[in-house]
C-alpha cells in the first residue's frame, strides 16, 4: 500500500496545476483527490494499476473467456464459409469468394418452400402453446392453499423435463404404435407417426407435456411476490376467486410474460434439431423436414459444407431479426426489454 501512495504523491507533484484545480473543486487546499489523480494518469499507468489490483479476477474469468472465444467466436468467424467455396486444403476460411451464390441456391432449392413452411408451422404451434400452457398452469397451482400439496404438484410436473429427447421420442413411438400402443389402439390401423398431418400436433403436444411444469416455475416465483394486502383489499371490494386471478395475479406476471415472449421470439425458426430428427421417418418427411435437419443432411451427411453453412446463417439471421423486432415492440408498448 505504501508503494502505491508514494506513487500517487509523486504523480501529484508532477501534476501540480491539476491538483490545485482539484483542491479548488473540493474546496480544500491541502487534501488532494486521489481518485481524480488516478483517473488522470497516463493510460499505461492506469493499465498497470488495473492489473495490479485485479489480476486475480482476470485469472478467474480467463479460462471461461478462452473457451467462449474458441468454441463460440471462432465458428462465428467461420461463417464466411457461407460466401466461399469450401477447400479442404485451405481450411475454414481459405476458399474462393463466391458472394451470395449459396444463398441463391437455397432460395431456388425445390424444397425451400416446404422447409420454410414446416419450420414456421412447427415452431409457431410450439411457441404459442408452449407459452400459454405454463402461464395457465402457474395461475392454477398458485390457487393451491396447502404448501405441501403445492410442492407435490410441482415435483410431479417438473419430472418430464429431465427425460432425454431420445427416450421421449421412443415413448411417443411405443405409445402411438398402431393397434397395440397406449394411445395408438384408439386410432385403429393407421400409424400416427407415419402421418404427415399428425406430425405437428404430436410434436407440440409432447413438448408442452414435457416442459409445461418446468417453465411455470418462473411465473410461480413472480406470483409468490404478490403483496397479500392486495388480495385482502380486493376481497373487501367484493372480488371473487376468478376476479382475483384476473385483476391481481395476471397483472403481476405481465412483466415476466413480456420478457419471456421476447426471448421466445428469438427462436421462431429455431425448432430443436434433435427431436425433429429423431421423430422423422420416410413417411412423415414432407411435414417434418425443417431448416436444422436439412442443414444436417446437406452438411454432415452430404458434406456440402458451404451450402449448409449458408442455410444455417440464413436461419440465425431470421431468428435474430425476430428477436430485435419483438424487443423493439415490447420496449415501445410496455417498457419491457432485454437489451
Amino acid at each position: 500500500m505504501s508503494a502505491q501512495s508514494a506513487d500517487v504523491s509523486a504523480t501529484a507533484r508532477a501534476h501540480g496545476r491539476k491538483v490545485a484545480a482539484v483542491a479548488k473543486k473540493t474546496g480544500s487546499d491541502s487534501i488532494p483527490d486521489n481518485e481524480w489523480i488516478a483517473r488522470h494518469q497516463p493510460w499505461y499507468k492506469r493499465l498497470a494499476n488495473h492489473f495490479r489490483r485485479y489480476w486475480e479476477i482476470w485469472t478467474m474469468i480467463l479460462p471461461a473467456v478462452g473457451f467462449v472465444l474458441l468454441f463460440n467466436y471462432v465458428p462465428m468467424y467461420g461463417i464466411q464459409l457461407a460466401f466461399r467455396d469450401y477447400d479442404v486444403t485451405k481450411g475454414l476460411t481459405g476458399g474462393k469468394w463466391v458472394g451470395t451464390e449459396y444463398f441463391e441456391q437455397f432460395f431456388r432449392d425445390p424444397l425451400f418452400g416446404e422447409i420454410i413452411r414446416n419450420t414456421f408451422r412447427i415452431s409457431l404451434w410450439t411457441l404459442v402453446m408452449g407459452f400459454i400452457a405454463p402461464i395457465i398452469l402457474a395461475l392454477l397451482i398458485n390457487q393451491i392453499a396447502s404448501p405441501k400439496v403445492k410442492g407435490f404438484v410441482q415435483t410431479i410436473t417438473y419430472m418430464p423435463h429431465f427425460i432425454s429427447t431420445v427416450v421421449i421420442v421412443s415413448m411417443i413411438n411405443i405409445f402411438l404404435s398402431p393397434g397395440t400402443g397406449l394411445l395408438g389402439r384408439f386410432f385403429g390401423r393407421t400409424s400416427l407417426m407415419g402421418d404427415p398431418k399428425a406430425f405437428t400436433s404430436i410434436y407440440w403436444i409432447s413438448e408442452v407435456w414435457q416442459h409445461m411444469g418446468w417453465n411455470c416455475i418462473i411465473y410461480l416465483a413472480a406470483l409468490s411476490s404478490v403483496d397479500t394486502a392486495l388480495y385482502e383489499a380486493a376481497r373487501i371490494d367484493g372480488a371473487g376467486r376468478l376476479q382475483l386471478i384476473r385483476y391481481v395475479d395476471i397483472p403481476t406476471i405481465m412483466p415476466t410474460v413480456g420478457v419471456l415472449l421476447i426471448l421466445n421470439m428469438g427462436s421462431i425458426l429455431g425448432v430443436g434439431f434433435e427431436k425433429v430428427w429423431l421423430m422423422q421417418n420416410t413417411l412423415n418427411i414432407t411435414a417434418s423436414e425443417v431448416i436444422s435437419t436439412y442443414t444436417y443432411r446437406i452438411g454432415i451427411l452430404d458434406t456440402q459444407f458451404s451450402y449448409s453453412t449458408a442455410i444455417g446463417l440464413f436461419n440465425s439471421l431470421v431468428n435474430f431479426f425476430f428477436l430485435v423486432i419483438a424487443n423493439y415492440i415490447a420496449k415501445k408498448t410496455s417498457d419491457t426489454s432485454i437489451f
Partner: peptide, 11 residues
Amino acid sequence: FGGGMIPSYLL
C-alpha cells in the same frame, strides 16, 4: 447468435 453446425464441425 452462433456460427452454426458446419463451422463448429470444421473447427
